[in-house]
Simulated assay, not measured.
Amino acid sequence: MMRRLFPAPLLSAALVVLWLLLNEPLSIGHTVLALLFGLLLPPLFASLRPQRPRIRRPLRVLQLILVVGRDVLLSNLQVGSGVLRLRRRQPQSAFVTIPLELRDPTALAALAMITTVVPGTVWCELARDASAVRLHVWDVQDEAAFIAHYKSTYEAPLLEIYQ
């Protein structure tokens, strides 16, 4: 019974908190709307989630978040300094195809978000069989080293977490 009313309790809580943060000032009306959205939207859209993700190593999730945060900061600095040096050195932009071992749809979605968040990389295409991803990389000096870094830093932890 509770599972039917609250199919995704964390999503419900996140919706309530996000609604209240985005709609200031805090009022009774916004609180009621937040609670309604938090309670009604997850059951209404539950059929759109084809499967529940199963996280096998939750502590690894925290470690991956920290690594991605570090990479976002470092990439921002690298892209910013690269833009400032455009007259002296042009970036070596390239499309890079990376073979994937990931097959879990949730893990692939997480990999796509990570790729999009890190400055200098854009997720362009996923092979139909999910065996490879094509990225546009703003400045890649050594394609093989980039592929090895991407697989070990992002794909390997997601494999541990989801598969």
Score class of each variant (00 low, 15 high):
Pro50His: 13
Gly80Leu: 03
Pro105Gln: 11
Leu100Asp: 06
Ala46Ser: 15
Arg89Ala: 03
Leu36Trp: 00
Arg52Val: 14
Leu22Lys: 02
Ser27Met: 02
Glu24Leu: 15
Val117Gly: 06
Asn23Thr: 08
Val140Ala: 05
Asp104Gln: 09
Val32Asn: 00
Gln90Cys: 00
Pro99Leu: 02
Ser81Ala: 01
Gln63Tyr: 08
Arg60Asp: 15
Val118Trp: 09
Pro157Ala: 06
Met113Phe: 07
Leu73Gly: 10
Phe45Arg: 12
Leu108Ile: 07
Gln141Ser: 13
Ile98Ser: 11
Met2Gln: 15
Gly120Thr: 08
Phe45Leu: 15
Asn76Arg: 11
Leu86Gly: 01
Val133Leu: 07
Val117Glu: 07
Val140Cys: 12
Leu33Asp: 00
Glu160Val: 03
Leu111Thr: 00
Ser47Arg: 15
Leu44Pro: 04
Ile147Glu: 01
Leu20Cys: 03
Leu158Ser: 06
Leu86Val: 12
Phe45Ser: 14
Ala8Lys: 14
Ser152Cys: 09
Val17His: 01
Ser93Asp: 03
Ala107Met: 04
Ala110Lys: 02
Phe95Glu: 07
Leu11Ile: 13
Asp104Cys: 02
His136Pro: 10
Thr116Leu: 14
Met1Ile: 15
Phe6Ser: 09
Pro119Cys: 08
Ala148Leu: 13
Leu40Val: 08
Ala156Gln: 11
Leu73Ser: 08
Ile28Ala: 13
Phe37Gly: 02
Thr31Arg: 00
Val140Gln: 02
Asp139Pro: 05
Thr121Gly: 04
Cys124Ala: 12
Leu74Asp: 03
Phe45Pro: 05
Leu73His: 13
Ala127Tyr: 02
Arg103Leu: 07
Leu126Trp: 02
Val83Gly: 03
Arg57Pro: 12
Thr97Gln: 09
Gly80Glu: 01
Val17Trp: 10
Ala107Cys: 02
Ala145Glu: 14
Pro105Val: 10
Phe37Ser: 00
Tyr154Trp: 14
Leu102Met: 06
Leu84Met: 06
Asp139Cys: 06
Glu160Trp: 07
Pro25Lys: 12
Leu126Ser: 04
Leu64Asp: 02
Leu33Pro: 00
Cys124Ser: 05
Leu20Arg: 03
Ile65His: 08
Ile65Phe: 14
Leu20Gln: 03
Ser93Trp: 04
Pro9Arg: 06
Val137Thr: 12
